[in-house]
Every structure is written in C-alpha cells, then in structure tokens.
C-alpha cells in the first residue's frame, strides 16, 4: 500500500465566514492588485469614454499598440514613443506619440484612405481641432499628457464621425 499523505480537513466548509476568512480574502484582493495592477487612470479614461459616448460617433477599434518593451506594468505611462493603430470600417488611423519639451506630447497622425479629414482631439474639458492634408496626415504638436480621444470626420461631412477609444497620452 502506498502511503498517500491524506490530510484531515481541519476547516469546515459550513462555518460562517470568520475573521481569518475575511483577512484571507482581503489579502487575495491585495495580492491580485499587486501582481496585475489596474492601470493608473483607467477609471478616469472610462468616465471620459462614457461622456464621449454622447457624441454618437462610431467607436473605432484599438488595433495595435507598439510599445518599446521597457515600460513596466502599472508605472506611469511610458515616456518613449508609442504607435497606436485604430480601425473602423471606413477609416484606419495610426498615431505616433513622442515626447516633447516639458513632459508634453506630440501626436503625428495618419489616416487611410488618404483624404482631407477634420480631426478633433478631445480631452476632459477641451477640444482642439485640426485638418489632415491630402495624404491623410495631421499633427498636434504640443499637448498635455492624460486621457484623450480623437474624433475623425470627412472635411466634406460625408459619412459619419468615428472616434478612437480613450488612450492615455
């Protein structure tokens, strides 16, 4: 007979939650948060996304994010350049973020198919607008960090507006 170490259960499933159970659960929650922290600002980005939902623009999909692999979970947003691609049925927008003086950010954008577009940069409490050139390129050269969403519509107002999910600049 093999000697399987059987352990006599010492804790009954039927006992009501006691102090230790509550402490265990609290520790589990804390550890889960330490191992995979909820990103900074996610609640704020979500709130902002909800307010933007009122614009009735079709929300594009976040397709592809290229981050230099130096950035570590849960830390402040990476300072180095990032490229993000958004897609919808009618248009694809790629933006490249790069740091500029004073901890601010430059956004270089490119929309395809190439056409003249009105591009709005929505921030909590403000909207800035620019237009893309005929190649679909646009720039916001000096913006604050924080949550932001782009709303894109054709300059001739044909078709409907599309917006990007809220990203952290």
């Amino acid at each position: 007979m093999g000697s399987i170490v059987s352990t006599e259960p010492r804790h009954s499933p039927d006992e009501p939650l006691d102090g230790d159970d509550v402490a265990l659960l609290a520790d589990l929650a804390r550890i889960a948060q330490a191992l995979d922290p909820v990103p900074d600002g996610l609640v704020e980005r979500s709130l902002f996304a909800v307010t933007l939902a009122g614009l009735e623009a079709e929300v594009m999909e976040l397709e592809y994010v290229r981050v230099p692999r130096m950035s570590v979970r849960g830390e402040a947003p990476p300072i180095e350049a990032r490229t993000i691609t958004f897609t919808s049925e009618s248009v694809t927008v790629m933006i490249s973020l790069s740091p500029v003086e004073g901890g601010r950010v430059r956004i270089d954008g490119w929309a395809a198919p190439a056409t003249s577009l009105r591009v709005e940069l929505h921030r909590p409490g403000s909207v800035t607008e620019t237009t893309s050139d005929q190649d679909g390129r646009f720039v916001f050269d000096d913006v604050d960090r924080g949550p932001a969403s782009l709303v894109v519509r054709r300059a001739d107002d044909a078709g409907s507006a599309v917006s990007t999910p809220v990203v952290e600049l």
Partner: peptide, 18 residues
C-alpha cells in the same frame, strides 16, 4: 493583454451607458 484590457474595460462602461 494589458493594453487591450484597458480598452475592453472602457468599452464595457460605454456599453453600460448605451
């Protein structure tokens, strides 16, 4: 992954409001 999860959570909140 973390980047997509950020987006998914936002989308869920927007969907709730809608």
């Amino acid at each position: 992954d973390r980047e997509q999860a950020d987006d998914v959570v936002q989308t869920v909140w927007v969907a709730l409001v809608r």
